[in-house]
Write a protein that binds this DNA or RNA. Structure first.
Lengths: 179, 179
DNA sequence: TCATACTTTCAATAAATACTGAAAGTACTG
DNA sequence: CAGTACTTTCAGTATTTATTGAAAGTATGA
């Protein structure tokens, strides 16, 4: 039997998931292929090689390689070496909460922190300017940078926290909406 | 004096902010120009016309028009008509918390909900399949869809909540990290 | 040391996305 | 109704981003 029988409902569902995860990724600024590889590894019972990924997604070696490295750079995927095997295997972090923490930490580090730094510099540069326009501008930038700063801190603390019990806690705090 | 004197520190800071907001937007899957127009309007003391935006960002009419419409579609910008003026003016929502709520709601609606629907369909399609692999796949998809579902609910409740007092509350709950 | 198995790089190319500008459309105004 | 002011559309073009594939690089082991 073919490893990827097109009548196999599991394979079909998995393909669907891979496609969906890819689409979701690209909506959030993540390369589609990278997200697809991630989806593939997340739902694989065993680590895969570059060639497995190439074959499954029908992509080139360079592409598979580059995106696997990038996923490893994020910490979402790690490489596994098997005794007696020369090939490199890759496996994904499967725990959803840990995945979330990794993604939060990395986006924070790569995108939020530099933006926040720039916002704060911008605030500082306009703090002591005279005139209504300058004051209004400074106020707006300050509001933004305070907000981004708080969000950054919250993300940081959530992603450092131990269990995945925070989500239920937040749900409880927020309660049911009135309408 | 030129309206945009390149020695004017306010204008410089604003340009810097526009550029930074544009870069941040594109990292998060938002068209750079759209984010720049948003930044421009957020820090404008008066509503602007399409021509103002074109002039400030040095972009074409079509581009300015299209992105202003899209921002209006998000609800981040609204059009203003002035008595005796035939031109259409645009102003941005300036309240940072409300901005956050709008963005949350829209991204939830446009990206999270469809993904969640697909995840749940995928879970359902594999729920009763036999075999270890199918069971493991189904478990993983279920974990993901539950997580995304909870996040979705939290985002929903936050963005429906009244004040902007939630962030400080969360900060308090999360407390100081141990390390 | 050579042959083999595998990984990495990167210039060329393809695909996706964003932008332009001019023409067509619409709505005021006198 | 004609002229003007403004808005909208969209085919063509430019830019950016992703992908390929082949060549170069590296490690293994006979």
């Amino acid at each position: 039997m073919n490893d990827k029988d097109s009548a196999d409902p599991l394979a079909l569902a998995r393909d669907e998931f891979v496609a969906q995860w890819g689409a979701m990724g690209s909506a959030w600024g993540i390369n589609r292929t990278m997200a697809q590889i991630h989806a593939l590894l997340m739902t694989s019972d065993a680590p895969l090689t570059t060639d497995d990924v190439m074959a499954d997604l029908k992509i080139s070696r360079g592409n598979a390689h580059q995106n696997l490295r990038e996923l490893a750079g994020w910490g979402l995927v790690r490489s596994v070496i098997r005794k007696g095997e020369r090939k490199e295997f890759f496996e994904a972090e499967k725990d959803v909460w840990r995945m979330f923490c990794i993604i939060s930490r990395e986006r924070k580090r790569r995108e939020i922190e530099p933006a926040l730094k720039a916002l704060r510099a911008c605030e500082e540069q306009t703090r002591s300017l005279r005139g209504d326009k300058a004051a209004a501008f400074n106020r707006q930038i300050r509001a933004l940078s305070e907000f981004v700063g708080q969000a950054d801190t919250i993300l940081d603390r959530i992603s450092r926290s131990e269990g995945s019990s925070l989500l239920p806690l937040f749900l409880k705090i927020l309660g049911k909406p009135k309408n």
